[in-house]
Simulated assay, not measured.
Amino acid sequence: MTSPIRKIYFGVTDRHQMFRLFDRHAQRPNRWQSDDSALYAGEWFEIARAEHDYMLEILPPLWMRGEMFAMREFLTGSITSVFYTLRINEVTRFFHAYCDLSDPRSCHDMRDAIVERERRPVKQMTRAERIEHIWSATHDRYRGYAGVDFSPEHRGKRTVMVYGTSGSSFQLLDHLTETQIAEKLPVHLRHLPLAEAA
């Protein structure tokens, strides 16, 4: 099963944010007991040049090809970090992505998807992108996975803390209302036009 290519954070991450996003699924139930490649494959976000260069210098890369290099250490299965230096709309920018190296097209498809997404003249976010940004930006204390308090068909799904008139509680991430999504997004992202999913 191929995981969709998806932007998981809006903005340029600093080093702390970058390392948090490397394993934003760390709290998942039964970690390491199954192949979680599909959780990571296809995820990407923008980084600063300093972070790109830092990652290049940590270890010799597995390979370097033009505007990209792959990390030698695999996250899970055949999934590893690939870092890109891309010229988009006359600006050089830097990105991290998780690619499945068992697919020889994976890194090129990822590059093309990033360029296509970032070339849009008007900033927009799909509902899925809003949801992914909320998950990425929420502190571990305020996000988790549905447990015994949820019906069996929802257990193991992602949850976030929501606040209401009767207090706070965890709610399924994918079930957030548009109002709750707006409340959880940073101010500069709340009023971006809603894009149709590709």
Rank of each mutant, 00 (worst) to 15 (best):
18 M>T: 11
77 G>Y: 05
170 F>K: 04
63 W>N: 13
5 I>S: 05
47 I>H: 00
11 G>M: 12
189 L>T: 02
10 F>V: 09
127 R>G: 08
153 E>H: 15
177 T>F: 07
107 C>H: 08
120 R>K: 15
53 D>I: 09
30 N>C: 13
69 F>K: 04
42 G>C: 00
178 E>T: 13
165 T>M: 13
158 R>E: 10
14 D>N: 12
65 R>L: 14
137 A>T: 05
29 P>I: 11
141 R>M: 11
82 V>C: 04
97 A>F: 00
91 V>P: 00
173 L>N: 00
59 L>Q: 14
148 V>A: 15
111 R>H: 04
137 A>H: 01
51 E>L: 01
36 D>K: 10
77 G>L: 03
151 S>D: 15
151 S>C: 15
35 D>W: 09
129 E>T: 01
27 Q>I: 11
185 L>K: 02
55 M>Y: 12
61 P>R: 02
132 E>I: 02
60 P>F: 12
96 H>Q: 13
123 K>F: 11
46 E>T: 05
28 R>W: 02
84 Y>C: 03
9 Y>F: 06
158 R>Y: 09
29 P>N: 13
170 F>C: 03
33 Q>K: 14
2 T>R: 08
53 D>Y: 10
69 F>S: 00
168 S>T: 13
122 V>A: 06
180 Q>W: 03
82 V>F: 06
70 A>I: 01
108 H>V: 11
138 T>W: 01
130 R>H: 07
165 T>N: 14
166 S>L: 15
97 A>Q: 05
161 M>A: 07
181 I>Y: 02
109 D>A: 12
101 L>V: 01
45 F>G: 03
164 G>Q: 02
13 T>W: 01
113 A>Q: 04
161 M>N: 07
149 D>Q: 09
91 V>N: 09
61 P>T: 01
37 S>P: 03
62 L>S: 04
112 D>C: 06
53 D>A: 09
60 P>E: 15
66 G>T: 07
14 D>M: 06
13 T>M: 05
109 D>Q: 12
75 L>V: 05
59 L>Y: 12
9 Y>Q: 00
151 S>M: 15
159 T>Q: 00
92 T>C: 05
95 F>V: 06
169 S>T: 11
75 L>F: 07
194 L>E: 15
117 R>E: 11
183 E>F: 10
16 H>A: 13
139 H>R: 10
173 L>R: 02
13 T>A: 10
40 Y>V: 01
147 G>L: 08
20 R>T: 07
61 P>A: 04
16 H>Y: 11
169 S>I: 07
83 F>T: 01
130 R>N: 02
75 L>G: 03
6 R>I: 02
139 H>Q: 08
23 D>H: 08
173 L>G: 00
22 F>H: 13
78 S>V: 00
41 A>Y: 04
151 S>E: 15
160 V>T: 01
50 A>Q: 12
84 Y>H: 05
176 L>W: 04
168 S>A: 14
143 R>N: 06
90 E>S: 15
15 R>E: 09
4 P>E: 12
178 E>L: 10
153 E>Y: 14
8 I>H: 00
26 A>C: 12
139 H>E: 09
100 D>W: 03
116 E>L: 11
6 R>E: 09
145 Y>E: 02
190 R>A: 03
25 H>I: 02
117 R>M: 13
85 T>V: 08
126 T>I: 01
10 F>L: 10
54 Y>I: 06
133 H>L: 07
15 R>I: 10
187 V>F: 06
161 M>Q: 14
47 I>C: 04
113 A>W: 03
172 L>S: 06
34 S>K: 14
189 L>E: 04
93 R>L: 09
